[in-house]
Design a binder for these strands. Structure first.
Lengths: 216, 216
DNA sequence: CAAGCAACCGACCAGACGGTCAGCCTCATT
DNA sequence: AATGAGGCTGACCGTCTGGTCGGTTGCTTG
């Protein structure tokens, strides 16, 4: 009554199914990843997949659920806060991007779900992973403002969106950025985030020893 | 010998095929958009599509080629430069995002191609649209630095990537940003870019009336 | 030993897929 | 009036899809 139908999480065979499905779904998308291909990749028969999962959608959902959980756990480490707000910010940017690059398949899998307009298969699931990171980052910025370490006259949500967006974009466009001559940071994400945060802090940091002058 | 096989660009019927295909490819992706569905949407028979295009891939390529061209033309207007560098920058950010939001199907179509790892169907094509905007923006920033309007100690490519990335991210994540309480700019892209550029200029602008102090 | 049950498979199904083909209609050229 | 070519179609093909079914293992429980 509890495990419904997806009584997975135990069997060895089941793990291989999920693993194979994750790879194929992430690489090719839902439609292009056939059950035959998944079965072959997992080294089992197709019929056996249907012993564990009632249909393709359920398998996809299970894969996405697992991926979403893993990704959230991975990203949670990025928002571990200690030290001054600016230090926390630097640490966040760096480890957030590192987390994305460390497990590209997970990110592609979840983000694909965000982009898909046609089928709201599991939007909520994908959004959850986003929600945690986003609100944690907003909290960091608000604390920074309350402490007086950061200007009070900017929108924390906007900065959070900008920071996360810059990292997501780097992750997505890395390959095409790589062969633009003026880009030298495509293979050095740490340098990217360092420059990025430097740039932002210029505008975010309260003027040293003076009251902040309002924007505009 | 010139038009190879895709002798389109004339017939009325052909235009409808391309239009229907663009819609379906953009909404559902290559695999999920069937030739039957495209034909139905275009109001013609499936066989007729094969009168104009040798196969599905060629049709997709033609759609992508057209979309890429249109998108590039649309984005080209965003980099029309006049006035001071900071004005140009504000104008770019605003109209670049507006262009993205104005033709979401085009953007999704082209960007999907960038994200797809499995099949390099037409990466180059998608990248071309990106190249123009990116290098134009870098040029703007370099000019700003040469004129002394912008700090000389930041990486123009990094800022360009950040700016474009922020817009692309806004475009992609808009729907999920919309229902986060701290986000008030999801339905106001102009406000988003205004805040964004304000934020950046704080760090980019040369200090008024003083020599710029080096970063770090 | 027998019963039972989860794991697993080969063979199969109806339907949808991309793609082909013979032929019809229209219309400009001769 | 005859011709031929392009726009267009319904019927069809082989293949592959998601999904089912009957049956065979092999381990656990009585």
């Amino acid at each position: 009554m509890e495990d419904e139908k997806t009584h997975c999480s135990d069997g060895e065979g089941c793990r291989r199914i999920l693993e194979a499905a994750e790879n194929l779904f992430a690489d090719k998308g839902f439609d292009a990843a056939s059950m035959n291909a998944i079965a072959a990749r997992a080294g089992i028969s197709k019929a056996n997949i249907y012993h564990y999962f009632p249909n393709k959608d359920a398998l996809y959902l299970a894969v996405l659920r697992a991926a979403s959980g893993n990704l959230r756990a991975l990203l949670a480490e990025a928002v571990a806060s200690h030290g001054s707000v600016t230090e926390v910010l630097r640490h966040f940017a760096k480890s957030h991007l590192e987390a994305l690059l460390e497990r590209p398949r997970l990110v592609r899998l979840v983000w694909r779900e965000v982009l898909e307009k046609g089928a709201p298969r599991a939007r909520e699931l994908a959004e959850q992973g986003f929600a945690g990171v986003f609100s944690a980052l907003v909290d960091i910025l608000v604390v920074g403002q309350e402490r007086g370490e950061l200007r009070p006259d900017f929108d924390p949500a906007l900065v959070a969106s900008l920071l996360i967006g810059a990292n997501v974009f780097f992750f997505q466009a890395r390959d095409i950025l790589r062969h633009y001559p003026p880009v030298h940071f495509a293979d050095d994400p740490a340098a990217y985030d360092e420059g990025l945060v430097d740039l932002l802090l210029r505008g975010l940091e309260a003027a040293h020893g003076g009251q902040p002058n309002p924007v505009r």
